[in-house]
Design a binder for these strands. Structure first.
Length: 508
RNA sequence: GCGGAAGUAGCUCAGUUGGUAGAGCAUCAGCUUCCCAAGCUGAGGGUCGUGGGUUCGAAUCCCAUUUUCCGCUCCA
């Protein structure tokens, strides 16, 4: 683990040193858990996004794209459940200085009392043997009935406090239940405060107080509220999908681990609209499809695993994560959720607009069910970067750091390098550079020895280096050097524009 | 948010009992012209994370604050 920690630190330094990722606002001391993508990072990130987009939108005739706004009608977040679910009531114990979710404390209390009931029942069961009637015992034993009453009362008050957003009532509940801090054992609590995971701001006139607007905590809702627009104008037939990439914002209590958990992050989501009853079939389909996509990036299957959700969110009837082995362990990279008709139903109800689909094959109307694939772009970036980062000891005893990025994702596809900066080689190299840069990202470099320039390109993951030497002037050939093998071959200059895209397609 | 550790040049770090900020690499200019980093000459770059305090004097001691990392917690 210590080794991985070291490795992770090296990756973070490398990311900064070579212009992939910078801490945001760094000259002002930075801002916690916000990062900027530098000159290489933005290329890599764009390429990942494009690779995803192509595989989802371009390669699937029944999936179309969308780019919805970050600002949305505030009621959307009521309908989606985010206003309620993203509001955690928090309370601190003044002695242990520990912070808890108030609802979790109450739930723990209820579980503890339930535990007492279970133990009582167990004891009684042993005592009475086979004649024991559990049902009857539970409903007649006064001590158990008293326990049960405590649970019921606590549950009701918890529910009321949650739905009414009654923070004072919450505090009173914790006081009345005599809940103690598991660490300090005291009842010295602060007031209950709300911690909203959604960022908010105001739109329009500040004099009205009803214009609070949220920065979207997920991109999915933008798709749901446009579902009927896309379906009608695109004449989409179920099953069909809508894909979108974009920023989302969550005011996480703790945001850490470099770009793994940021407060501002980018999602790549696809919502697939299916017939009710067929959602689990499609869930399995997308689970397999998405894993294929990850493996197509050339990373070993052992780096990935599925993690089934046992506790499902309020909207889901099946959910699985694709986890990736980051330097800090297996962590969620992508979620595949069967969201049922929860979202569309909620929007239908809150908006009063019909969101039904008429299925000509079944000759009936229904609200479609939704299977979602939702992947973190920044996390994918981190997964790819951390896996690509390699330190090598070469045969001659020297070291090199190379980013073994999939060529299709590399920020720079080719570097154009005159062997020496004289004898007309730079001029020739410029000609080649001008030709190639029309088709893909290239970098021209003539400073320093050729070996050093190769190493610099290795460090940013450039898959090919094209070197112009004296022979080029004679027979119009160049050498093309491959990043991973460091092998070179000589090819004719007019073959370069075609050969690199061709190799990028096949080299994974 | 709590606890621990750290913050000195772009990077990695040194800086003695408090006494005028250093190295290597990198960068830039010039020389060299060589197919896998580290040839030569020169130059630029730091109010030592920030703000206070103690002191004749603070990178060094004290307090606060901020950022990062680790653990706990959280992650619909």
């Amino acid at each position: 683990m210590a080794n991985n920690e070291e490795a992770f630190k090296k990756i973070i330094s490398h990311a900064k040193e070579y212009g992939f990722v910078f801490p945001s606002s760094e000259i002002y001391d930075g801002i916690s858990a916000v990062y900027d993508y530098g000159q290489q990072g933005v290329e890599l990130k764009n390429n990942i996004r494009q690779y995803w987009w192509k595989s989802m939108v371009q390669f699937h005739e029944n999936i179309v794209g969308l780019d919805s706004a970050i600002f949305m009608h505030p009621t959307i977040w009521k309908a989606s459940g985010h206003v309620d679910a993203f509001n955690d009531p928090l309370i601190d114990n003044k002695d242990s200085k520990k912070r808890y979710r108030a609802d979790v404390l109450v739930e723990d209390y209820m579980a503890k009392v339930q535990d007492k009931i279970d133990k009582e029942v167990e004891k009684a069961a042993k005592r009475f043997g086979e004649t024991f009637d559990r049902e009857q015992y539970v409903t007649t034993n006064p001590r158990i009935m008293e326990y049960q009453a405590r649970i019921d009362s606590a549950g009701q008050r918890l529910y009321k406090a949650m739905t009414d957003n009654d923070l004072a009532g919450f505090k009173q509940l914790i006081v009345d239940l005599e809940i103690v801090c598991p660490i300090s054992g005291t009842r010295n609590w602060t007031d209950v405060r709300q911690f909203n995971l959604m960022f908010s701001t105001q739109m329009g006139s500040l004099s009205e107080d009803t214009n609070v607007i949220y920065l979207r905590p997920e991109t999915a809702q933008g798709i749901f509220v446009n579902y009927i627009n896309v379906q009608k104008t695109g004449r989409m037939k179920i099953p069909f999908g809508i894909a979108q990439t974009g920023k989302a914002f969550r005011n996480e209590i703790v945001a850490r681990q470099f770009i793994f958990r940021m407060r501002e992050f980018e999602q790549m989501e696809m919502q697939y609209f299916v017939r009710p009853g067929e959602e689990l079939k499609w869930f399995e389909y997308w689970k397999a499809e998405r894993m294929k996509w990850h493996l197509s990036l050339g990373m070993p299957a052992s780096k990935y695993k599925f993690h089934n959700h046992e506790k499902l969110a309020h909207y889901a009837n099946a959910a699985v994560d694709i986890e990736f082995e980051f330097p800090f362990g297996f962590k969620e990279l992508e979620g595949i959720h069967s969201r049922t008709d929860f979202d569309l139903n909620a929007h239908q109800q809150f908006s009063g607009k019909k969101l039904q689909y008429f299925d000509p094959e079944l000759n009936e109307s229904y609200v479609p069910f939704v299977v979602e694939t939702s992947i973190g772009l920044d996390r994918t970036f981190l997964a790819i970067l951390s896996h690509a980062y390699t330190e090598e000891k070469l045969a001659d005893g020297s070291d090199r750091v190379v980013l073994r990025l999939p060529p299709v994702l590399a920020p720079i596809k080719a570097a154009v390098l005159p062997l020496v900066a004289k004898d007309g080689l730079p001029e020739k190299a410029r000609d080649i550079m001008d030709l190639l840069k029309i088709d893909y990202m290239c970098q021209y470099e003539e400073k320093d020895s050729i070996g050093r320039r190769y190493r610099r390109q290795d460090a940013i993951g450039t898959p090919y280096c094209i070197t112009i030497d004296h022979q080029t002037l004679e027979d119009n050939t160049v050498t093309i050097r491959e990043r991973d093998t460091m092998k070179q071959e000589r090819i004719s200059t007019d073959k370069i524009p075609a050969i690199i895209p061709e190799r990028i397609r096949t080299d994974k």
